[in-house]
């Protein structure tokens, strides 16, 4: 390999304190630079847990390297978009405030926000067509608009690896299209994207690569080849005759 992978996970295992079963067991994979990878699996398979563990939000066993280094050294190059349900939508911040948070890491402790920061934030919002909503309190936005605020924050950070938790959950079709276009643009700029996704139907067309997960890693590779009946049956624990239906809805 010429340059180290944006994210290399080896032998990652994790058990939530006080629980008997492992949440994740012996997961190893490495992302290809410039690829769009989806993490797929049934409910409770540990999809969100996997990305949280990779980002150090949980404390797993195993090794996690970003471009061959620890997360601490390359923090600014990694962006994270949390699941929408984990956000306190009643918090008193405007959409612009949230987007500007993407620059906080770069500005550092004690640094102040300047005019050029605001302009950069507004242009990121423009790219997602939400610049007109800049002054609105985030709770007053629709689901799709809220998601785009968080994507604008990610965009503003100008990270090389973007990690997203269910960005398509609970949003409208128009927003979905804007977001999909954004992913294609980011890919053409050479950025690597990893996201948790729950819709099997769109997975094959959306992603380059697939990580199929159910506590253990069942498959990592090309999306078009990966989603066959046998593997899905294994992941979702369903008898043979039902996989057709599961794959379509």
């Amino acid at each position: 390999m010429s340059s180290p992978s944006p994210l290399l996970v080896s032998d990652l295992s994790l058990r939530y304190p006080g629980q008997m079963d492992m949440a994740l067991e012996n997961i190893s994979f490495s992302l290809t630079s410039g690829s769009l990878t989806g993490v797929i699996g049934p409910n409770g398979a540990g999809k969100s847990t996997l990305i949280k563990a990779a980002l150090g939000l949980l404390k797993p066993q195993g090794e996690i390297l970003f471009w061959g280094q620890s997360l601490k050294a390359v923090r600014q190059r990694v962006a994270y978009v949390p699941q929408r349900t984990q956000v306190d939508w009643d918090f008193p911040v405007s959409a612009l405030d949230v987007v500007q948070m993407g620059l906080y890491g770069q500005i550092g402790w004690l640094g102040r926000l300047r005019k050029e920061h605001k302009e950069a934030a507004l242009s990121a919002m423009e790219r997602l067509r939400i610049a007109d909503l800049a002054q609105r309190q985030i709770g007053n936005l629709s689901g799709g608009q809220q998601q785009r605020v968080f994507l604008a924050r990610m965009l503003l950070q100008n990270a090389d690896l973007c990690i997203l938790d269910e960005p398509f959950a609970g949003i409208d079709a128009a927003a979905e299209e804007i977001i999909i276009n954004l992913f294609q643009e980011l890919k053409s700029e050479g950025k690597t994207i990893l996201m948790v996704h729950h819709d099997l139907q769109t997975a094959a067309t959306l992603f380059d690569d697939i990580i199929l997960l159910n506590k253990t890693l069942l498959y990592h590779g090309s999306a078009s080849e990966g989603l066959n009946d046998e593997r899905l049956r294994q992941a979702y624990h369903i008898p043979a005759f039902e996989t057709g239906r599961a794959a379509h809805g």
Binding site: L57, M101, Y104, I107, G108
Partner: peptide, 22 residues
């Protein structure tokens, strides 16, 4: 006065604050 930015970030989204280095 000096840490308003950090207070906002941490109160709004402490996980993200950790990832951003605060």
């Amino acid at each position: 006065f000096f840490f308003f930015k950090e207070i906002r970030l941490i109160l709004f989204n402490s996980e993200y604050a950790g990832l951003a280095g605060f």
